[in-house]
Design a protein around this nucleic acid. Structure first.
Length: 407
RNA sequence: GGAGGGGUGGCCGAGCGGACGAAGGCGGCGGUCUUGAAAACCGCUGUGCCGUUUCCACGGCACCGGGGGUUCGAAUCCCUCCCCCUCCGCCA
């Protein structure tokens, strides 16, 4: 949620930055509602004060009655205005930070893109040869675009999970496992609601939503809490399945493990002091990069322009791994600094040593998406005979160094 | 799923229609005393919003799980939702 006071006092600046998102955003109405709100507050507070003053005297009964009706009427209007204002405010995306480039910027390219002297295959074909996926049966059970792994596929998934958790722990992230079904208000907290309802799976009976990322649960973890200054930064990681409806994306980029309704991910998350978030954001990106480096996968880091930022993000770096079988870059991590945007929605604050209270900043990033990373390994480590070498760092987790077809 | 019992300030806990932002205790902060510390004693001790102000601050209103209602007036009465606990049933 953007800061109303900031908007009131620096309207031009806010408007200019939001415009870069190329969305239709109406601030006029918000400011009008805010004026109205403040006018009504003044009015009702004056009357309440009067009521308080006479409540001890002899005129409490007759005069109080009249005041009561006047107060009730204004309260009703005020509530109405506040609801409208809140609704508008919840629909405004985060303000892009000053760092955000005008168009997608390639920050760096790392690792070596290998030359292959045979015909390289995309990962879904490799998986078919190795018999480690079964999308047909997944589809029979659940419908299209659900994953089903077997044998070495499962082993690599679990190996990656263990590798990620261990490396991230070394980088200082405490591991936690959260619920995967959450209340509506939780989805509001991190910004999935109200605007992106169609992207979410919902359990109607219980009014619960399946999380599309652990960012949701981690971001809400400290909701309505005030942290002490020296508790920060808080660094956590969480493994979770992610459920996404992917509405409207059928027919594109949907082969194999790439854009499924369900996948596993390890999420990195930080709560920081405002003055530290830029620096802690960059170090989170580095932490995610470390994983790709150790897996020896070629990747690049791109910084997204304003019109590609997610709703809650003020600044985003994507990590994209090279897919030789498809000759393209594939996003395996998206890291965002949300600044105080989510903290306002979740009311997560910090108390300074001098007693002052402020909103914290939140930073999230994948570290990493498991399915896509596996896809990248299959393509980058494939051999001509259809087997796949196991990356050095995964050998101890997989307890083997090559993946062959199994019956 | 069924039957009960609860949610009050950082924590414990009283209040059950007006004098209550809320007794008392603990913790925390400041002070007195002390060579220092402890003890003892004294004072202070939340959050949000609206406004005033150059800062330090100050004034007002609201907040006793959330929302609604009754009443001139609600922490206190009523409704509803959420959360926690106990017992029974079911269950990985």
């Amino acid at each position: 949620m953007i800061d109303l006071r900031l908007l009131r006092e620096n309207r031009g600046d806010v408007e200019r930055k939001l415009k870069k998102r190329k969305e239709d955003i109406n601030l006029e109405n918000i400011l009008k509602l805010d004026d109205e709100r403040r006018r009504l507050i003044k009015e009702v507070e004056l009357l309440r004060r009067e009521r308080k003053l006479i409540s001890k005297g002899p005129e409490a009964r007759e005069k109080g009655k009249e005041l009561k009706f006047r107060i009730q009427e204004i309260e009703k209007n005020l509530k109405d205005v506040e609801e409208k204002l809140k609704r508008e405010l919840l629909n405004i995306p985060n303000i892009p930070s000053d760092y955000v480039p005008d168009e997608m910027k390639i920050v760096k390219v790392e690792g070596e893109i290998k030359e292959y002297d045979f015909k390289v295959l995309p990962h879904w074909e490799i998986g078919k040869i190795l018999n480690i996926f079964d999308f047909e049966r997944a589809s029979k059970i659940s419908g299209p675009r659900f994953p089903l792994l077997k044998g070495y596929g499962v082993r690599m998934e679990i190996a990656l999970l263990n590798f990620f958790l261990e490396e991230n722990r070394k980088s200082g992230y405490k591991e936690i496992i959260t619920p995967y079904l959450v209340k509506e208000e939780t989805m509001f907290g991190t910004g999935q609601l109200p605007k992106f309802e169609v992207e979410l799976y919902k359990c109607e009976r219980d009014n619960l939503y399946l999380i599309p990322t652990a960012e949701v649960t981690l971001g809400n973890l400290l909701r309505n809490e005030i942290l002490e200054e020296d508790e920060l930064p808080i660094k956590i990681q969480s493994f979770s399945p992610c459920f996404r409806r992917e509405a409207g994306s059928y027919g594109k980029e949907t082969k194999g493990l790439i854009r499924n309704h369900q996948f596993h991910k390890v999420e990195l998350f930080k709560f920081t002091k405002p003055e530290e978030s830029d620096e802690k954001f960059l170090s989170l990106v580095e932490d995610a990069e470390k994983l790709l480096k150790k897996l020896e996968l070629p990747y690049r880091v791109v910084e997204l322009p304003a019109d590609e930022l997610a709703f809650s993000s003020g600044r985003t770096f994507d990590l994209e791994v090279w897919m030789p079988g498809e000759k393209r870059w594939l996003e395996v991590s998206s890291c965002s600094n949300c600044y105080d945007f989510q903290a306002r929605r979740t009311n997560t604050r910090l108390r300074r040593k001098d007693g002052k209270i402020e909103f914290v900043h939140t930073i999230n990033g994948s570290g990493l998406a498991l399915g896509r990373t596996m896809a990248a390994i299959l393509e980058n480590y494939q051999n001509e005979d259809g087997t796949v070498r196991v990356p050095e760092v995964l050998k101890k987790y997989m307890d083997c160094d090559i993946i062959k077809r199994e019956g």
